[in-house]
């Protein structure tokens, strides 16, 4: 693979990384704000940070207790 090609690839993928970053930050703020999560809270922190993309989404959908 040419170096220029790699550069172009990174340029196109940059928005994805930014979006992923936004998602993670939002999930982290939400994580700090919630008192009750389903299951232990620190596990969710690991999931948000370690599982890229899927972790924050899972946290938003099933992580928080609504009631």
């Amino acid at each position: 693979m040419e170096l220029a090609e790699v550069g172009e690839l990174l340029e196109l993928l940059l928005p994805l990384f930014i979006l992923q970053f936004i998602l993670m930050i939002a999930a982290l703020i939400a994580w700090v704000k919630t008192d009750q999560t389903k299951g232990p809270k620190w596990v969710w922190l690991l999931i948000i940070i370690l599982a890229n993309l899927v972790g924050p989404i899972l946290f938003f959908i099933i992580g928080r207790r609504q009631d």
Binding site: L16, I22, L23, I57, F60
Partner: peptide, 24 residues
């Protein structure tokens, strides 16, 4: 509950995943 942030972000991901992977 941050829906206004994460739902659009997830939809963006879903809709560009395939065009990008197909191209690359």
């Amino acid at each position: 509950n941050f829906s206004w942030i994460w739902v659009p972000v997830v939809f963006i991901f879903l809709s560009i995943m395939d065009p990008l992977t197909t191209y690359y």
